Simulated scan of single mutants.
Amino acid sequence: MGDMLGAESPHGNLPGAWIEPRGLLNHRKWSPASMAALHVAREAVAASGWSKEELEDAALVVGTSRGNAAGWLGPWPERRPFKLMAASNTIHSEPATAISIELGIFGPNHVLASGCSAGLDALGVGKMMIDSGLVERALVVAVDLPLVPLLLDNYANSGLLAKSMRLNPFSADTGGFIPGEGAAAIALSSVEEGVLRLEYFANNSDGADPVGVPKNGGRTMRLLKKAVEICGKPGAICPHATGTAIQARSERMFYSQENFPEGGTMHLLKPFIGHTVGASGLLESAILLRFMSDSKLPPNLEGTVGTGGWNVFSEAIPCVGPVFKLAHGMGGHNAVAVFETTS
């Protein structure tokens, strides 16, 4: 991260992933996180083909863990300073406010801050609003820019940061995550035919520890069993798999051969993009869906190992059966989304 934070940074020799070009994040009013969110929101709306009138009535759901830490807890180039609480960009809700104002979205508006699960939870809330008949369309956005010195100091002091550029979450020597900036947006609709479907979403809480992961794997298996009961056995799974040893220990339990004797394929995406914290669940979902739109599933980085009876391939493979995406937030928050192709 020395290339971005400077050689004098105590984290300069550690790997990280950030958005280029940096100009995408610069604005005299909106925060860097809001600018990243706006960029992907505009892309998703353009791809959806929604009219101005359709967009006005849509729901907007934003997921973020660290909100506007970037540009608030530390200086940001080309950004004028704001006094604390003098403007909305000192709080989590500003990305949603910026999107609503800039894109003209006046429907239900929600911001979720459920840690590293925030992006996937935002997708679930969007689905629930559509399924309930509240709206016909929902724009779901997730963003986090965690490469802030104060945040990195705390991650490092907790022993959570990886020292190697080669992230291999289920390998024996895994010991930390690679922090990454990320933003993603997905347009959900009940009225437009397509080849992709968000079939199911659910979340729960371990209720065991304010920050930790239970040694017994927590209540994730309850989520998975219910998802299997409703959607069928997964053809593929994309785990949270941050790279920390404690996360790997927990996930090995619920992806074990005992729980999934038939296995399937496993797709680990953080070795490519790093851990984008609250954006990770939605960003990885967007990657999965892009491959699924071509009836494929993404490759794993060469040399990546899996766990249990799951197969790990280093090339793109055909998409067969339901695809499960998992996310977990510190404090024992678990979420699962199930995607399917309709053709």
Rank of each mutant, 00 (worst) to 15 (best):
M1P: 04
M4I: 13
A7P: 05
L14M: 08
G16L: 01
E20W: 03
P21T: 12
H27A: 13
R28N: 15
K29L: 15
A33M: 01
H39L: 05
A47H: 06
S48K: 08
A59K: 00
A70K: 10
P75F: 14
R80G: 12
K83W: 11
A87Y: 08
S88I: 15
I91Y: 06
I91D: 05
S93F: 05
P95R: 15
L103Q: 08
G104E: 00
I105S: 00
F106H: 11
A118K: 02
D121T: 01
G124Q: 01
G126I: 05
D131N: 13
L134A: 11
E136C: 07
L145M: 07
L147C: 06
L147F: 14
L150S: 10
L150P: 05
K163Q: 12
P169H: 08
G180V: 08
G180K: 03
S189F: 10
G194W: 05
T220M: 14
M221V: 06
L223A: 05
L224M: 13
E229S: 14
A241Y: 00
R249Y: 14
E251G: 07
M253P: 00
Q257W: 12
M266S: 00
L269T: 03
L282A: 04
I287H: 05
D294C: 08
S295V: 02
W310V: 02
M330F: 13
N334H: 09
V338I: 07
E340K: 08
E340V: 06
